[in-house]
Design a protein around this nucleic acid. Sequence first.
DNA 1: ACAATTCGTGCAAGATCGTGTAATAACGTG
DNA 2: CACGTTATTACACGATCTTGCACGAATTGT
Lengths: 206, 206
Amino acid sequence: MLTEQRKRILLERLKRQGRIIAKDMSAELDLSEDTIRRDLRELAAAGLLLRVHGGALPASPTVANLDARRSMAVAEKQRLGQAGAKMVEPGQTVFIDGGTTNLELVRHLPLDVKATIITHSPIIAAALEPHCNVEVILIGGSLLRHSMVSIGAVALEAISRLHADLCFIGLTGLHPQEGATTGNYEEAAIKRVIIGRSADVVSLVT
Amino acid sequence: MLTEQRKRILLERLKRQGRIIAKDMSAELDLSEDTIRRDLRELAAAGLLLRVHGGALPASPTVANLDARRSMAVAEKQRLGQAGAKMVEPGQTVFIDGGTTNLELVRHLPLDVKATIITHSPIIAAALEPHCNVEVILIGGSLLRHSMVSIGAVALEAISRLHADLCFIGLTGLHPQEGATTGNYEEAAIKRVIIGRSADVVSLVT
DNA sequence: ACAATTCGTGCAAGATCGTGTAATAACGTG
DNA sequence: CACGTTATTACACGATCTTGCACGAATTGT
């Protein structure tokens, strides 16, 4: 393992996951924590990240504008995202709904994964930029401000013409009697169509 | 073993595997590490790779070039964005093309501006999230990886059904290297349709 | 306040590097 | 063909880099 290569990996990981935990990285890269800490220290000295107790955080202010919702249950969402990313198999066509948990899912997808991803969330689509082997199909329509996804007749029709092996649906709540709930009626309609056009359905819920 | 031939092998290996370890290569090519090191040094001097302790890494990391593009001429783009933002009048319907300069434009729009914004760039759409009085219409389609905008028949048809008071077109053609790529033929077609559906046309160019 | 992590520093072993040197081979020239 | 020049490669050796470990200090959670 080359030192510089490792530093690149660390920075890449930081950009994609928003944080680094020294202990986890040492286990993952099979190196002592000292080495990871040394790297983080040097990268911090170079101004490329912000060193904190236990790991590191991005130094760039671009990530500073996270809203409150996005910082909720970060650790849990990251675990969910990691688990979800493993369910995507090469060559599949996957529908990804909006939401912060699904955004974490995208961030945990391997950069070189080969797949077709359909989404009606511009945020999800933008997050897929570095995945050079992913073909992204963007669903257009009116953007629902609350959750930043395309809704309306145009979106509905576009989705109903496609079909996916797997879909990741974002849910705001899961109720024992009522079942799955979501905030907006239009959005719920879209979700139903997506589910109808997918062979398998997965929902990552905190 | 010819020296030049060996250098080609090294560069090829670097491109395929993303890294070179001097020791491994010396074993594989059955040469002393000194020879490999000398080659790596010379290739590094020629700017064809980045010499690091233990081996070599690509000179232009694939992950870095999108950030590099994004950080080009930042100050100028900000000025352009500011100027462009002033051209948007309340209540207008505005089409915003992709590109980093147009992204700056969005960032300079007043948060409370009241307008309808049409875009085929998920990045532009995502940047409009905080503008609570803006109605966003997202154009779907296949995403062109190079510039992250929707292209194809679906996008074209969706655009041709709309009409805007003003459009901001991004021009990459002025970048001598990037503009030379032929991959954006589809994108050019889309741009033409956008211009055709807009009363006024503006392009912010660095 | 106390225990458990995590951190930073110093240190030593091993790996890697750069330079200098020598041997060999290919090349150009008279 | 003979000769000097240049290129290439391997080896030697001191310098530098990397890494894991030890130990005391700092931070965090209970």
